[in-house]
Structure formats: C-alpha cells, structure tokens
Design a protein around this nucleic acid. Structure first.
Lengths: 209, 209
DNA sequence: TAGATTGTTAATCGATTAACAATC
DNA sequence: TAGATTGTTAATCGATTAACAATC
C-alpha cells in the first residue's frame, strides 16, 4: 500500500510550501526554490512533477498559481474531510484543538473517550463517550480516525472503527494495530522518533567528541 | 545523515515490542513473532540482527532477556536524556505531560514559551519564558530540543537553540528549519501525515467504489 | 545570442526480499 | 531423525541522483 507514500508526502509538502511562498509574493518559482524550502533537491522536484505530468517553462520556471492548482487537483484537495479523534488525553486534546488542519480542508468534528471526566458534548468540538462512536461514524459517514489511546485499548478500538466503516487510521498509539488490507493504517510513533533522534545525537558525539 | 534511520527506528521498535512481550510472559521468541508485532517481516528482523551482530539459536529462536540487553546496548539506552520543549501550546503541553517517555529514559525537564500566560515556573515540569532558554540549555547541558512553535518562530528559535548548544531537534512546526550539518534535525509533519492518509483513502475509494 | 532552467533518460545507489545451507 | 528456524548471500526491486539535450 504505502508504495508511493513518499512521493505523495513530498507533493503535499510542495503544495504547503507554495502556499507560503505565494503569501510572500512569489509569482514565478524554480525547482531550486521549491527544493530548498521543502528539504529536498531540485532534481527530485522536477522528477516528481514529471511523474505527475506537471510542466513549467524551460528557463522561466513555474507559475506559482498554476502549480498550486495542479497540485491540489492531483492531491484531491477540493472537498472537506471530516475526522474524529479517539482518546481525549493530552495528545488527543491537542489534536482536537490544533488549528492548522482547517486551512487544509480537514475538520476534526468530534472526539471520543471512555473517561466520563473528559466528555463534553457541548464543546466547540464535542467529546462523546466511546459508546457513541460507532453510531456517530455511521450517521456522519466518517472515513478517517485518529487513535491516541493507550496501547492496551488500540486494537479493540480499531476493530470497532473498521466495523463502523472507517477506511483510514492515523495511529499514535505504540500498538501495532491490524486491520483488513483495504483499510489504510499509518503509524506515528512519537516515542520511537524521539528515541532515534537521541540515538543519532549520541552516535555523532562518539564520532567527534 | 539519515542514512540508517530506518534500521535504527526498527531496532527501537523491536526493543519496545520486546518489553511488552516480556511482560506477557514470553521467554523465547522467534523472528516471526517480532516481525508480526513490529509490522515488518521475519527476514527483515533477521537481517537487521545480522547487521548488528545479534544472534539467536537456530531452531530455538532468541532469548528475550538477552535480546533486550543486546538491543539496549546497541541503542545506547543506558542513561537518562534530558529534553526541553519549545512552545507550550496544545501540542507542546501535550508532549510535556506525555508519560510514555520516562519509561525509556527520556525526561522532559522544562518547557519554554513567549506567552506569559503559559509560564508556570513551579509546575512539576516548569514552563519558563523564552528569554531564559539559552541560559537554561547551557546551565543544564541540554542536547535535545523539541519545537512545537508556529511556523513563523521556528527558524529563529532554531538559531538560538543551536547557538546555545543543542545538537538534535525534533521539529513539529511546518517550517523547513535549517542548521549546520552536525546538528540533527528530524521533522514530524502532522498535517502532511494526515493529508497523505486522506489522499490514500480517497484514492482507494476511486479504485473500488 | 548566451545563459539558465526544465524534462527525461540512464546510471547509481541502497534497501528489501528470496532462497537456502547450516544446524539445533 | 524430521522439522523448523536462523544467518547470510545473492537477486530483485525501487527510489534517488546525475547528466544532458532541448529550449526559452
């Protein structure tokens, strides 16, 4: 499944970077500029564009408005996607209140938790009890869920989510959750990311003390 | 730099998975078990072990205790690493209060923010004003920082961090921050991750509607 | 024009997978 | 022993990079 995740991640990154460069007043842009502000190389940028049939003008670079439109078309960023968050602990609550998503047509419309202290059905983004999750997904036709629960709960919640119709899961729990092939599961292991950073810093220190 | 990030991420994952399997009572373990609970393949597990000189016994698999010890040795998980978090907004506050790190010898010892409302120097993990950051880093010999500030502030904070002695940065801001080659910068683009998940779910829907 | 940049092909590089001999 | 699993080599696969002709 994740065959071309890397290229899609880069295209999304280009799109996000271009919006910012546009705000700064850029009208024309070169593969070199894009690469620099996306953390990749000009050759990579041109290659990615080539694969998806995006072309600029030789010598003149790319028109930033046209580029953004083309990327948005490829990336299907035309309609709003509703997302729910399972687990309203520290991380879950943070994501629920994260403002950056809405700009990109992503709307977190509800949170769910098993702890009655966390529940607040009248908040701007309501937090419901886990019991109401399956029904909510079906009623609102939700396809995407974010899991921020502890390890122990993750697989059971995954099963319920998929049963109710969820097709994509962003998993922040350390659990290796499993589902049928057609459901897409992407993991973000915060702990492992931080551990690997520490590893490489220590390794570099050993090399040149 | 990130040459072998993938293999280190997997070794860390194995280690984390093994601790859990140990708690479940496993004494011997096979590459097959490890692969299954880490989301990889048995061949990959054996290959990774082979690269780092870890061996088990043919037919008998691996002794879980010995394996954990070897992995911890390779991964340098013997001493506690202190980490600071810059930005005490939703995400920053969540990470500061995230309990899962401490088990892995990672201690978040302070947060920093520019907003005086966020400051609380007497909290269990104190939040200081940004002005005190450089001095704090030097005084406490901090090497690792996590950035959760908005885009606009990220590069300037990065410069200050590096100037003060930080060697590794985990960057949650959407900015492409830059530093000297010897400083390790790892990005986690939450927005892009979620967008890519949505992309693939939509793409799959088109394939089989 | 001269110089710079695109677009694409071919070469390289590295990581994963397959396969299987060794052996417990 | 027979069967299962490791450890390692070779084959495959895919992604990145280099190079350069086309051309604005």
């Amino acid at each position: 499944m994740l065959v071309n995740k890397k290229i899609i991640m880069r295209l999304l990154q280009y799109k996000n970077v271009l919006s910012r460069l546009k705000k700064l007043g850029f009208i024309k842009i070169f593969s070199d500029n894009i690469a620099d502000s996306s953390g990749t190389t000009p050759a990579q940028v041109r290659k990615d564009f080539s694969v998806y049939g995006i072309s600029g003008s030789k010598r003149g670079g790319y028109n930033i408005d046209e580029l953004i439109i083309e990327l948005n078309k490829i990336l299907g960023k035309d309609k709003i996607t509703s997302v729910i968050v399972i687990g309203a602990g520290n991380l879950g609550a943070a994501l629920i209140n994260y403002k950056f998503f809405e700009k990109e047509n992503i709307k977190i419309i509800a949170g769910f938790d098993i702890d009655s202290k966390k529940i607040n059905e009248s908040a701007p983004t309501p937090i419901y009890h886990l019991d109401k999750m399956a029904e909510f997904i079906k009623k609102n036709n939700i396809r995407i869920a974010v899991i921020t629960t502890p390890h122990i709960a993750a697989q059971q919640i995954t099963d319920t989510l998929i049963e109710a119709g969820i097709k994509g899961i962003l998993n922040f729990s350390p659990a290796q959750i499993k589902g049928p092939e057609e459901v897409i599961i992407q993991d973000i292991h915060l702990q492992t990311e931080l551990e690997s950073l520490i590893y490489f810093v220590n390794a570099a220190k050993k090399e040149r003390p």
